[in-house]
Design a protein around this nucleic acid. Structure first.
Lengths: 342, 342
DNA sequence: CTGAAAGCGCTTACAG
DNA sequence: CTGAAAGCGCTTACAG
């Protein structure tokens, strides 16, 4: 037998639904239903299809499904960093929340860059995602434009929005920054430095909280602020401690905008023979695993990043399903962890 | 004007290539070429199409492209963990290597589970990936079966394979384990403990190297091994240090299978008043950022994980392009970092 | 419960 | 360089 069309065939060589259907002796439609809506097919035919699937080793073609159904079953997630443990825990929460549904999760790393974010969103939109999970509230005008045009449901993570229509899961970065500063003030510190890097949205909001508290207490002094745009690392924390001490030698406490910087600052103090907290109190932000274990243990703010990811994903899923969630703004709060370092 | 087919339309509502073509007054084919192979279209038409794309805000439909071309432009990456900095750096290398090409990178977290790996590979195969990047050499028989059937190019990362046909980028975990143990032996230690958790493939290979070196020196003693299946954390390192000391009180050095455990062990020693390295030498594996900064700084093995990701992605890309790489096994080596703790 | 037809939005394979 | 036709592998919308 000659198959006339064989030569000019564009077939991929993979097993198709049509082949499964033929093997089972049913129509393609029935094979499709047996797989995606088994309840709508009789037991007998369903069994035959299932068997054909196994015998042929059928793997559904997601692109074809997406094209035909105009439902991608894709959720795109954008985080500013993968080396920051905060965001890998956010991702863990998202994965756990979406584990049962068979969403394909597209993880994008913007590296704290608006340009990268724009590029990634453009790319991901090509996959026609059912929804997106974004880090932060502020995006470039072009991104906002693109997002609006696309009509893709978006949930913002990490901070609380003032716009009640915006779906948001997080906690108030300003309040957390304020709370940590008040804690230091209440401990009697007067010259409280603020050490920051990266200067992303969240860091700036924490700085806002710091300034509010300092202002209220009449302690505000810009000599006490050391803020640089480089990525936060332990090494940078060590370096910036030196800069702070040079700039404000009378500084008696330092609020680091995250634990990485704080770890570096503490280690640097140890090397310089500065006793923490006796001579200098140091605290951080996020409560990374090492913070509870290092010596001295680090006073910091514990943030609910796993739950942020989890709840954000659940919220997005509800919206995708067409539900109108009662609570569009989920505030998960934060916890001040008073330990040895401050 | 009534559009007769409008009601029964299954159109997604998005701008399509056909609309762009109509707007530009060319055939769909020409619009397609103007976008994907601009050199094959005259300047004049190309400009008209480009303009139509902008005016209409056209976003290509990746599913349709994948289906028609049977090229997904997808690369799937499987790592056992995202909370382990080692693998996030591998991912960074992969991203950087693939940045120019417009591959969609699918990141899967197997959580050190064969079942999860199987599930993820099954899911990702539905997207018909152009290639896959896998962590480790050993996979379940079913996974190997599925992979073979799929004919998708695979590059294995993190360790060196003995099978010369297997595309591999990494370094010898056995040799690294051996080297660290020899270092401790050469320093005069006799009772060298081995502390391990997770017990994944790589950890077991490091244990192999440890045992080889201990055996050669006539120092092997299973009382010196504490190995548990739980995930590695600083907290677990702190706990296991206690267990080791209870089991082998005369132990004079401890080789921790990774830096997280080592950090926990060092912190625990500090809390118990055990001086490191004077009373007990401690070393780790991977050289995480904190290791160089903590006090005492940690002796460990620096591993080239960023480059592993980078080179593995480059290798995979070459294979996808049909090249036959001269070097199918890339050994990136490792570096012993002798510091204060051992 | 089952199926024949049409269509999703693109690209391949030709032909001119 | 340009384009009309067919097809990728599924699902939707009907009809029975």
């Amino acid at each position: 037998m000659i198959k006339p069309a064989a030569n000019k065939s564009r077939a991929s060589g993979r097993i198709t639904l049509a082949m499964v259907a033929a093997h089972a002796g049913v129509a393609t439609m029935t094979a499709s239903r047996a797989i995606t809506q088994p309840d709508m097919v009789s037991q007998a035919l369903r069994d035959r299809v299932d068997q054909a699937v196994v015998e042929l080793g059928y793997v559904p073609n997601r692109a074809a499904r997406a094209l035909a159904s105009s439902q991608s079953k894709v959720i795109a997630v954008l985080v500013p960093s993968l080396s920051n443990a905060v965001f890998t825990e956010v991702l863990a929460g998202i994965q756990d929340a979406l584990d049962a549904d068979d969403y394909q999760i597209l993880i994008g790393n913007t590296r704290y860059s608006d340009k990268e974010e724009e590029k990634l969103i453009g790319t991901y939109l090509q996959s026609n995602p059912d929804g997106m999970l974004l880090s932060g509230l502020s995006h470039s005008p072009r991104v906002q434009q693109i997002l609006t045009n696309s009509r893709v449901p978006v949930v913002s993570m990490m901070d609380m929005s003032t716009d009640p229509s915006q779906l948001t899961v997080g906690f108030s970065q300003v309040q957390a920054g304020y709370a940590m500063t008040r804690y230091l003030i209440d401990k009697g510190h007067k010259r409280i430095g603020f050490l920051a890097a990266q200067l992303d949205e969240r860091t700036l909001r924490r700085a806002e909280g710091y300034r509010q508290a300092m202002q209220e207490a009449g302690l505000l002094d810009n000599k006490l602020e050391v803020m640089v745009g480089e990525p936060s690392t332990i090494a940078l924390g060590a370096e910036l401690l030196g800069r702070m001490l040079a700039q404000a030698p009378d500084c008696d406490a330092i609020f680091c905008c995250n634990d990485d910087l704080a770890h570096g600052a503490v280690y640097q103090c140890q090397r310089r023979g500065i006793s923490v907290p006796a001579q200098l109190a140091i605290c951080g932000f996020n409560d990374l695993p090492a913070s509870a274990w290092m010596n001295p243990s680090l006073t910091t703010v514990a943030t609910p990043r796993y739950r942020i990811g989890y709840e954000a994903a659940k919220l997005l899923r509800a919206v995708i399903k067409g539900e109108d969630p009662a609570n569009k703004q989920i505030d998960l709060g934060f916890t001040l962890m008073a330990r040895e370092s401050a």
